[in-house]
C-alpha cells in the first residue's frame, strides 16, 4: 500500500514535468523545421552558454515567490554588482579574485538591505524591491559614470570554452540549480519556506522562524545576483550600465512558466530552470528565423501565457 502510493507520487512528479517538456519539445520541433541550423549541436551549446545568468537569478526568484514575496530589483542589483566588478577590474586594475569577491559582496549587501527592510521592518517586498530597482540603477550610473567598460581579456577567460563547447558559467549555474533544488526539497529550510508561503500565521505558530527564513531568502537572492553579475560580465566581456534591464520580468516569467505560484507556498527550482530554457529557446529560435521585433514580442507574450494556462489545466485535471 505504502509502496504503491510512493510510486504514484513519483509518477505524479514526472507527470508534473510533462506539460513543460511538451511545450519545450513543440518549440524545438517548430524552430527545427522553420530554420536550417536550429537543431544542431552548435546551437545547443550557444543556448547553454546564454542561460547561466537567467538560471541563477531564476533560482533566487523561485525562493522569493515561494515565500509569497517578489523581487523586482534583481536586474538593477546585478548591474550594480557588475559595475563594481568592472570598476575594480578595469580602471583600478585589481586582480580578478578581489573584484569578483567585491561583486558578490555587493550583491549580498544589496540583498541583505532588501531582506532587513522586508523581514524586520515588515515593509512589503514589492515596495522595497521597487525602491531598490530605482536606487541600484541610479547607483550603477554613478559607479560606471554611465559609461560602458570594455574588460576584454581580463574577464573573457571566465566564459571561455572548457570542453565540448561548455563553459564554466553553465556548470556553475547548474551547481547553483542543484544546490537550490536540494535546499528546497531536502532541508528544514526548504520545508519551513514552503510552510511560510502557504500560511505565514500557521508557520509562525508552529515555531518556524518566519522572519529569519524571509531574511535568508532575499539575502541569498542578492548573493545569487552578485554571482550573475560576474557571469553576465564574463559573457559580454564588458560592463554596461544598462545591464539587466527587464531581467526581473524575464526571471518572473520563467519561474511562473515553471509552475511556481505567485501567491507563494508552491514551486520547483528544476521547473523554473526548464522555464528559463523555454524562454531562451524561444529567443534564439525567433532570431534564427529572422522574425521582426513586433512578431518576437507578440509570440513571446503569447507563449508565456499559453505555457501557464497549459500548466493550470494539467493541475486542475489532476
Amino acid at each position: 500500500m505504502a509502496a504503491s502510493t510512493k510510486t504514484s507520487r513519483s509518477l505524479m512528479v514526472w507527470a508534473d514535468f510533462l506539460g513543460l517538456a511538451l511545450a519545450l519539445a513543440v518549440l524545438v520541433l517548430y524552430f527545427s523545421m522553420t530554420t536550417e541550423n536550429f537543431f544542431s549541436v552548435t546551437n545547443l551549446k550557444t543556448i547553454a552558454n546564454q542561460i547561466p545568468v537567467d538560471l541563477v537569478i531564476a533560482a533566487g526568484m523561485t525562493f522569493v515567490l515561494i515565500s509569497g514575496g517578489i523581487d523586482l530589483s534583481v536586474g538593477s542589483m546585478m548591474a550594480l554588482s557588475a559595475a563594481v566588478l568592472g570598476v575594480l577590474l578595469g580602471p583600478s586594475g585589481l586582480p580578478f579574485g578581489v573584484a569578483a569577491l567585491a561583486c558578490l559582496a555587493t550583491g549580498l549587501a544589496l540583498g541583505a538591505a532588501n531582506a532587513s527592510l522586508i523581514a524586520h521592518l515588515g515593509v512589503p517586498s514589492f515596495i522595497v524591491t521597487l525602491g531598490m530597482l530605482e536606487a541600484a540603477r541610479g547607483a550603477t550610473f554613478l559607479v560606471t559614470n554611465s559609461q560602458t567598460q570594455y574588460l576584454g581579456a581580463k574577464i573573457e577567460w571566465v566564459a571561455a570554452e572548457m570542453f565540448w563547447g561548455i563553459s564554466a558559467p553553465i556548470l556553475i549555474a547548474l551547481v547553483v540549480v542543484a544546490l537550490a533544488h536540494v535546499a528546497l526539497t531536502h532541508t528544514i529550510f526548504g520545508r519551513s519556506l514552503l510552510a511560510l508561503g502557504q500560511n505565514e500565521e500557521a508557520a509562525r505558530l508552529s515555531g518556524i522562524p518566519v522572519k529569519r527564513i524571509r531574511w535568508i531568502v532575499f539575502a541569498v537572492t542578492g548573493l545569487l545576483v552578485g554571482l550573475a553579475g560576474i557571469l553576465h560580465s564574463a559573457r559580454l566581456s564588458a560592463v554596461d550600465p544598462n545591464a539587466g534591464l527587464g531581467l526581473e520580468l524575464r526571471a518572473i516569467a520563467a519561474v511562473v512558466i515553471g509552475g511556481t505560484s505567485l501567491s507563494g507556498g508552491r514551486g520547483s527550482i528544476v521547473r523554473s530552470a526548464i522555464g528559463v530554457v523555454l524562454i531562451a529557446v524561444l529567443g534564439s529560435g525567433l532570431a534564427q528565423a529572422g522574425a521582426q521585433e513586433p512578431v518576437k514580442r507578440l509570440v513571446t507574450g503569447l507563449v508565456i501565457v499559453a505555457a501557464v494556462i497549459l500548466d493550470q489545466f494539467r493541475r486542475r485535471a489532476r
Binding site: 550557444t46 529567443g283 534564439s284
Partner: peptide, 8 residues
C-alpha cells in the same frame, strides 16, 4: 540576437 544569426 547575433548568436542566433551567426548560428543560422
Amino acid at each position: 540576437v547575433a548568436s542566433g544569426i551567426l548560428n543560422e
